[in-house]
């Protein structure tokens, strides 16, 4: 078969194929299902928006809780306003501090100050 013959035969084949494939009408469910799909896609952004809002609220609450947990001990440590030596003095008797050369042993004398 020559190229031209084959070319013509292909044209005929496509024409016959078009006739052998009628356009289907679509089932009665076509339109209801289409509208269901349209509405489903419309509600998707709403659902995503709701999830996003929930996530943001949860994240904000978590941040607040973490801030409270982290900041509270810091404030407690601020309560200590005495120096190291004063704290030692309060914790230990004078003789012990004198013994360890932290404080002179005549600390009780008025002349010491």
């Amino acid at each position: 078969m020559t190229h031209d013959e084959l070319d013509r035969k292909l044209d005929i084949l496509f024409r016959e194929y078009r006739q052998a494939c009628p356009d289907p009408d679509g089932s009665p469910n076509f339109m209801p299902q289409l509208w269901q799909k349209i509405e489903a896609r419309q509600t998707l952004p709403l659902v995503l928006g709701r999830w996003t809002r929930m996530f943001v609220s949860f994240a904000a609450a978590l941040c607040l809780a973490m801030a409270v947990v982290l900041v509270a001990p810091y404030h407690q440590s601020q309560v200590v306003q005495t120096t190291y030596v004063e704290a030692l003095e309060r914790e230990h008797p004078n003789d012990m501090l004198a013994y360890s050369d932290v404080v002179p042993d005549n600390i009780g004398d008025p002349s010491w100050r």
């Binding site: 078009r18 356009d23 289907p24 009408d25 679509g26 089932s27 076509f30 299902q33 289409l34 799909k37």
Partner: peptide, 24 residues
């Protein structure tokens, strides 16, 4: 346009059971 588009789809994809789905 439904009929025409479904017809085109059926000739493009060749699977009648999926034509409506692609048309939608």
């Amino acid at each position: 346009y439904r009929k025409r588009i479904l017809g085109t789809i059926s000739r493009l994809i060749g699977r009648p059971e999926d034509v409506e789905d692609v048309g939608q």
